[in-house]
Design a protein around this nucleic acid. Structure first.
Lengths: 194, 194
DNA sequence: TTGAATTTTCAGAAATTACTGAAACTTCGG
DNA sequence: CCGAAGTTTCAGTAATTTCTGAAAATTCAA
């Protein structure tokens, strides 16, 4: 692997992390390499930079394309395919979230829905169903939030993040304002958080 | 595998999903089984239910304990270890988030910090560093939000989720209220979201 | 149409990861 | 201290995943 040392440590780290969740080492390395490269790279360039076979690069790029994590570019008078990642890290985050939801959440929700439709044949099954119902409800709340928030433009999303938990304080303020004139609500004591 | 059909499909699904992110099939299955079981189970019970070897169960339970996803119980006059999952799905979510952050985010941030301290020796390195800086900044914003929000009790967290994107509308309302008397801010037109 | 440049496919080899059975270890009552 | 009940470890094997080289397919200029 012939790479500037700074890029190299990044690429190697991403290879390792890659294998810590679903994606394999090579895919992680290629993604990292594209991410830190100022120009789009062609497959042979990746082969040289990472010291892996041409066919492996081809398959890994195809996988990255399947995740929409990589952009295909063409240069004039050059038949080769060149690849980059999007410039905007927020856009990358959105893609990642969307694809992971599609692969990891949606299928689970489908399975849970199917099971929850069935008639339990015993107490054990009734209990199992109620547990699955809990899980279903939780994931539903999370994905509803996600579906709502993902539509925000980046500035507003950043604002929302910056606000964090303060939102609830804001909410409680609003409650006080709204309830003004209807009698004061008992104010919760501090320290009743978990 | 001798299991009520409802539990069985759940367990098998979790096995498959498990291998879609880092954790292996057996670990996923054991977790799912514990999750839907009304009572704590001992290792031999798991062996029978899933048809896997005793040693595999032992290693997989150890892995789940490493993730804090499983609770060890003891019954009076019984030397065996019994295992369950916590009852509260929100608690499970918190644990999962915490552990994944520890394993997937923190090490990456450490690597990024180290690389960003170095002096770039070329334009390519300068560019690579700026990209890593972008990534660092993004993850920092996300984890700051997470650190803030994870301290909320479950009710408030649920409220915050339910509110979703409406938070920003609330914020803009607050801006108008706060700026009252300081001259009206130009109101953004609808449809300027991405 | 040919053939050079490039990409893709795929069967098998290599590497990694998961699983097992047997043995070692731990704990505890008698 | 012994032995019964239970758990963990680990070396070897099985299963799975990843990677490769060779061949096939595609694309395009001449």
């Amino acid at each position: 692997m012939e790479l500037p040392p700074i890029a190299q440590s990044f690429v190697l780290h991403f290879g390792e992390m890659g294998s810590r969740w679903g994606i394999n080492r090579t895919v992680g390395q290629i993604y990292a390499l594209l991410y830190v490269s100022p120009e789009p790279l062609c497959a042979d360039h990746i082969v040289e930079a990472l010291g892996i076979s041409r066919s492996n690069v081809s398959m890994s790029l195809r996988e990255l394309q399947g995740w929409n994590l990589v952009v295909l570019k063409h240069l004039p008078d050059d038949r080769r395919d060149f690849f980059t990642t999007p410039d905007d890290v927020w856009q990358i985050l959105r893609t990642l979230a969307e694809e992971r939801k599609k692969r990891e959440i949606d299928p689970t929700m489908t399975v849970l829905r199917e099971i929850l439709m069935q008639h339990p044949a015993s107490d054990a099954e009734r209990y199992a169903q109620s547990r699955m119902g809990d899980m279903y409800g939780l994931i539903e709340q999370l994905t509803n939030w996600y579906d709502d928030v993902k539509q925000l433009d980046t500035d507003r999303l950043a604002t929302l993040l910056a606000l964090g938990a303060k939102v609830t304080r804001l909410l409680e303020t609003k409650d006080r304002i709204v309830s003004f004139g209807r009698g004061r609500q008992p104010r919760k004591k501090d320290g009743d958080d978990e």
